[in-house]
Design a protein around this nucleic acid. Sequence first.
DNA 1: TATTGTTATACTCTATAACTATA
DNA 2: TATAGTTATAGAGTATAACAATA
Lengths: 170, 170
Amino acid sequence: MQAVDTIEGPLPLPTSAANGGNSGVNTRFLDSLIGYNARRAALAIIGRVLPRLAPYGLRVVDFSVLTVIAHNPGITSRQVCSALDILPPNLVGLLRSLEKRGRVEKREHPSDRRAQGLYVTGSGAEVQARAQAEVAAVEHGRLTHLDAQQRATLIYLLRKVYEASDSQSR
Amino acid sequence: MQAVDTIEGPLPLPTSAANGGNSGVNTRFLDSLIGYNARRAALAIIGRVLPRLAPYGLRVVDFSVLTVIAHNPGITSRQVCSALDILPPNLVGLLRSLEKRGRVEKREHPSDRRAQGLYVTGSGAEVQARAQAEVAAVEHGRLTHLDAQQRATLIYLLRKVYEASDSQSR
DNA sequence: TATTGTTATACTCTATAACTATA
DNA sequence: TATAGTTATAGAGTATAACAATA
């Protein structure tokens, strides 16, 4: 448990806009949570990345899938799913779209006739490389206000959180 | 830009299950991203919190709304929306549900007859306090493997990321 | 003219059940 | 009997347009 002050009586209506944080609303408890802050940070970054991927016809998921395939030629659908925590039925449409636009192609798997190897095409590789550069630019740009050391620390701590949580009982 | 090794040739199929990380799939680039790691951490924690809120009939959003109201008696819908980044039409149903179950009540606003002040009821306050204790237990429990210092650092860095991103151009 | 709360609605994302062909 | 890929579908979650009442 944790004591959190409450403001008694009705709140003043927001003076206008442009207040620090959120207009004097007490969000102290939520602000103390890793989950809440991690979600907000993720959404903020995704909001930045989204418009820079759009010119390539990619959403964030599309980029993730394309990237995993580009970096793992011959990977199967199933492997993409478990690497990215996507459910198999939901990957079908993503792949179909990437395939239709000529970014990805399926070839028969050398040892398992049920499976198919996924590969990026020439244009797929090109689009992926450019998109990756855009994403890297957002991540490493000054907008995050983090230096290399802080980035490393942040990622280290985040991984610690979800690796612990993913392995343990669940 | 950033060089990322690729594995050439088809991937071996997963030996069975229970591999470290994700079965030898190269996700190096995604793993280097704050956005990607923040999202995974958030989802991991939410996955932990969810079942502990369920007994109180609350999802994560419900808890967030209930908590903000509990800590800000008399707050308006509009203020809840901007504090939690919820769109007004989507808050209506959440409030209706909390109201129907007797956790929240609306009273007329003292100075603005368009608006309504939101308050938790007795049972609402009780449920909120217990739910908050559950959430705090998950967050501070050993599962995250973080000590107080690391928690503080993590939250500081996350806030830096999204406060920078939220304020700047957007 | 702007804002609060609201309806109706559409769109995206995520999840489940069940099928086929191979293993 | 289990797994890879797929279909169909259901359910959350999130978004936009437009309205009445009040400021």
